[in-house]
Write a protein that binds this DNA or RNA. Structure first.
Length: 258
DNA sequence: ATGTCGCCTCATAGGCGA
């Protein structure tokens, strides 16, 4: 079994004890982190738990990292297609023969702004890469915070997200296009029609207590990896703790090669 | 419009991003 988890921490500094405690309890093989929110990355804390790490950081915003209990090779730290894009949102490694890609896709609010255009362009660039990845023999997992609510079922109430960038037709059709390439949404493929399954809840108005959330953290699996899909689980535990991130971890379980 | 976080600074309050 090979377990890969993903968690948007909303500051690794503020959530260090949350993530180390969770790693000890759940022991995933790989953990993808997003929204580190700072240049410093506490690799020592993870190394002492048996995880090597690689991080892409910037001041104050964004930031992604991959932790692994197995040797990993860094392939890329930027998403190709725009040399002027300096955001820390992309990290590609190979571990255990799997291409593991960690993304923090742009939020894109407000709708119609430059940030919205950046989001759509970023998704177009991602799609081009995901096409290329299907053409080689390395099974591929693209995971992280996609900042896209794929379907109406993925939010508690569509009308309250109608004006949000995460719910607009343009990013949603681009997300569906990734599935049409042949990638599998790990969670939804195993839990079709299951309502109320979310990975993010706003901090305000007790959104978590009322389960008013959205499903925006995803794992997309290439066909050969989808054949190995055993399970996909959202762990709501960390979101219920004191001083939580607004996201909670999602874990995908893959069978070993025969 | 608002709610609540976390980061940063022309810093101890306000702006930005989410």
């Amino acid at each position: 079994m090979f377990k890969v988890a993903s968690w948007n921490l909303n500051s690794v500094r503020s959530r260090l004890t949350h993530v180390t405690t969770w790693l000890k309890a759940r022991e995933p093989d790989v953990l993808l982190l997003q929204e580190l929110k700072g240049t410093e990355f506490p690799s020592g804390a993870f190394e002492s738990l048996g995880y090597e790490s690689v991080a892409v950081t910037q001041k104050a915003y964004n930031g992604v990292a991959i932790l692994s209990r197995h040797p990993m090779k860094t392939i890329a730290k930027t998403l190709v297609g725009d040399d002027s894009d300096s955001h820390a949102r992309f990290l590609e490694v190979i571990s255990k023969g799997i291409r593991i890609v960690n993304i923090y896709l742009p939020n894109g609010n407000p709708v119609g702004s430059d940030k919205f255009a950046y989001k759509l362009a970023w998704m177009d660039r991602l799609k081009r890469q995901m096409i290329l990845w299907l053409k080689d023999s390395v099974p591929t997992l693209v995971g992280g915070d996609f900042n896209v609510i794929p379907e109406d079922i993925d939010c508690h109430k569509p009308s309250s997200w109608m004006h949000d960038a995460l719910f607009q037709p343009e990013p949603r059709s681009r997300y569906r296009a990734l599935l049409e390439l042949g990638y599998t949404d790990a969670f939804r493929s195993l839990h079709p029609n299951e309502v109320g399954q979310f990975t993010f809840w706003d901090y305000f108005r007790q959104a978590f207590q009322h389960n008013r959330g959205i499903r925006i953290d995803h794992f997309l699996l290439s066909p050969t990896l989808a054949d190995r899909l055993e399970g996909c689980e959202i762990d709501k535990g960390p979101r219920a703790q004191e001083k939580p991130s607004d996201h909670t971890p999602i874990i995908v379980t893959l069978s070993d090669l025969p």
